[in-house]
Design a protein around this nucleic acid. Structure first.
Lengths: 133, 133
DNA sequence: CGGGATCCCTTACGATACTG
DNA sequence: CAGTATCGTAAGGGATCCCG
């Protein structure tokens, strides 16, 4: 048997839960940065390149709801809010490590596979359609 | 340092690649089933509950393009096509194992966190609006 | 500073019908 | 059997404005 026991249906079903949590565009990015230590909203906004303010809010709310991060509000002016990983959040990030490692290891191979596939596909298209007269 | 070395920006950037591959609704499900051995199109269709014929095709094409599965056509009538994991596909699935394990371990805690969060949120909403009558 | 509310566009996805 | 083609809907996500 493989490392994960049980029927594939079960495994995969569970997998959907994690993917629902960190499978989106930004969650893992944010978790990754929070693994470095607590961060404030604007710090994250700057650190996570390309994220919009709206998506940072949405992402953080989702992570908070799932118990991955905690949100701490210090009632001062101007507002001061810090986000940090929960212990569970820490373990979640650690659990993604093999996947990170895998990606780094296979990145070149993946790119090659894609180019090869696209080249095949493009050729078929070019060959099936007659260049107009 | 954590298990993954390098700057978070790098790690997370790589993570996006894997998530782009298996972060969608069906890919990991399909990979999971193919880990059991080669399968035919209709076998997968039946095995992966709820997947539409269209999404199975789309998913398989994507996995094929990324070098995760191979598609083998036997030219007979009726058509006979088998899909199987590539060696790289095997290792990808293995790399997801910790995440599966993590999910199984923390599922109850996640549900609890969600309910607690939702309860808090609902209370706030209920408190701000007066019950009519 | 740390958001919420709104608008709008692009994808992902599902249902259905047709085909070699 | 193993798809392709087409359509409609829902969700994801970005840009912008506003507010305590």
């Amino acid at each position: 048997m493989t490392a994960t026991s049980g029927r594939p249906q079960q495994n995969a079903g569970r997998a959907r839960v994690v993917l629902g949590m960190v499978g989106d565009k930004w969650s893992l990015l944010v978790v990754c940065h929070l693994d470095q230590g607590p961060r404030r909203f604007t710090e994250l906004k700057r650190a996570v390149e390309g994220i919009s303010q709206r998506m940072l809010t949405v992402t953080l709310r989702g992570l908070e709801r799932d118990g991955i991060v905690t949100r701490t509000v210090h009632n001062v002016m101007p507002p001061h809010v810090t986000y940090r990983l929960t212990p569970m959040g820490k373990t979640l990030y650690e659990a993604t490590t093999p996947l990170l490692q895998w990606t780094i290891k296979h990145l070149a191979h993946i790119d090659a596979a894609r180019e090869a596939y696209d080249a095949r596909t493009d050729t078929w298209l070019a060959g099936s359609v007659q260049p107009e007269h």
